[in-house]
Simulated scan of single mutants.
Amino acid sequence: MSRIVYVNGEYLPESEAKVSVFDRGFLMADGVYEVTSVLGGKLVDFDGHTARLRRSLSELDMASPASDEDLLAIHRELVARNGIEDGMVYLQVTRGAPSERDFAYPDASVPPTLVLFTQAKPGLADSPLAKTGMKVISIPDQRWARRDIKTVQLLYPSMGKMMAKAAGADDAWMVEDGAITEGTSNNAYIVKGQTIVTRDLGNHILSGITRAAVLRFAQEAQMKVEERPFTLDEALAADEAFITSATTFVMPVVRIDGRDLGTGKPGPVATRLREIYIEESRKAAV
């Protein structure tokens, strides 16, 4: 059965979904996106994702295509129509499709483009990788400076994923001025002793919705958290490491640049935080 997607007010079979060749998301990467996880047919951290979407739109002076209430209704309708139990809903907003290509923004008469689709990921919370841990490599961070805006400019992160794949790893951590910023599609953490260290917020990293929840759960569990830059050498000397994202939740990292961390197996802090996050997310999902 064809997947049903949403395009500018219509629910359509994916084979019938179309946007203009003049859409600025296609021509200029002039768009933002969000990915909301689905567990047990319910949306995880939906309010956090809509709040970040509003911020991204505001930072780019882009019009909002719908209210939060409407977006929630669209998400739920897509989950229902596609029978998603575990998976994700992808949302993208672009500045729309003017009649001609131009570097200057179009005026307000051009409506934004709104597209959503689902992806089924059965057993999302039971990933085998969580039991073995991830391997990552380090690469230079060569992205633009406004990484705090969740734009569709994902070419370099895609290149980083391919660099990792070529090296036999699962992902890449990006390094700038000697410090790790984040993974290609996730926030990065190390654990030394009983202290969790992750990069502080700013223009250099994305303010992860899962990141915020995990740090809150860590502090509620009486774990010490430091938000500051950390170096690659610190990461290599860490007792354990992990990443967070909407689709991986908390995922242990056991090797960096071919060197094992700690025991070379998922550590207790990452393992416990993953358990807490999944349990609490199931309770709060809408």
Results as ranks from 00 to 15, higher is better:
272 R>A: 13
113 T>G: 08
124 L>F: 02
283 K>G: 11
57 L>E: 03
278 I>F: 05
86 D>M: 04
7 V>P: 07
33 Y>S: 08
40 G>Q: 03
14 E>V: 15
87 G>A: 04
286 V>I: 03
17 A>M: 07
224 K>Q: 14
70 D>M: 03
66 A>M: 04
158 S>R: 11
226 E>M: 06
49 H>W: 02
96 G>Y: 00
91 L>A: 05
102 D>A: 14
113 T>K: 08
268 P>C: 02
213 A>P: 00
138 S>C: 15
209 I>E: 07
214 V>P: 09
35 V>T: 13
262 G>V: 05
103 F>I: 04
132 T>Q: 13
111 P>Y: 07
180 I>R: 04
177 D>Y: 02
241 A>E: 10
169 A>V: 02
38 V>E: 07
67 S>W: 02
246 A>I: 00
183 G>L: 04
178 G>A: 12
229 P>Y: 11
279 E>P: 00
95 R>G: 11
221 A>V: 01
250 V>L: 10
279 E>R: 15
75 H>F: 07
284 A>T: 07
278 I>K: 10
205 I>G: 08
82 N>M: 05
209 I>D: 10
42 K>I: 02
179 A>V: 15
185 S>F: 13
33 Y>W: 11
199 R>I: 06
7 V>D: 09
187 N>E: 08
79 V>L: 03
28 M>H: 15
225 V>R: 06
34 E>K: 07
24 R>C: 13
88 M>A: 14
247 T>L: 14
269 V>H: 09
129 L>P: 00
150 K>Y: 01
161 K>S: 14
35 V>Y: 02
62 M>T: 11
222 Q>W: 13
147 R>A: 14
74 I>T: 14
127 S>P: 00
45 D>F: 01
191 V>L: 03
280 E>K: 15
195 T>F: 03
253 V>H: 08
250 V>H: 03
137 I>R: 12
149 I>L: 04
173 W>D: 09
139 I>C: 13
255 R>K: 10
268 P>I: 08
123 G>R: 12
144 W>Y: 07
35 V>D: 06
220 E>C: 04
260 D>Y: 03
88 M>P: 00
239 D>H: 08
87 G>K: 06
241 A>N: 11
61 D>Q: 10
264 G>I: 09
126 D>P: 00
39 L>V: 06
149 I>V: 15
90 Y>H: 08
223 M>H: 14
242 F>S: 02
116 L>V: 02
157 P>W: 07
37 S>P: 02
168 G>K: 11
4 I>W: 04
72 L>M: 14
189 Y>S: 00
121 K>E: 09
280 E>D: 12
87 G>C: 07
135 K>T: 14
212 A>R: 07
285 A>I: 01
76 R>E: 15
114 L>Q: 03
22 F>V: 05
88 M>C: 09
274 R>F: 00
125 A>G: 10
245 S>C: 10
36 T>L: 08
266 P>A: 11
87 G>W: 01
8 N>Y: 03
243 I>M: 13
21 V>W: 00
133 G>W: 03
36 T>P: 01
176 E>Q: 12
223 M>D: 11
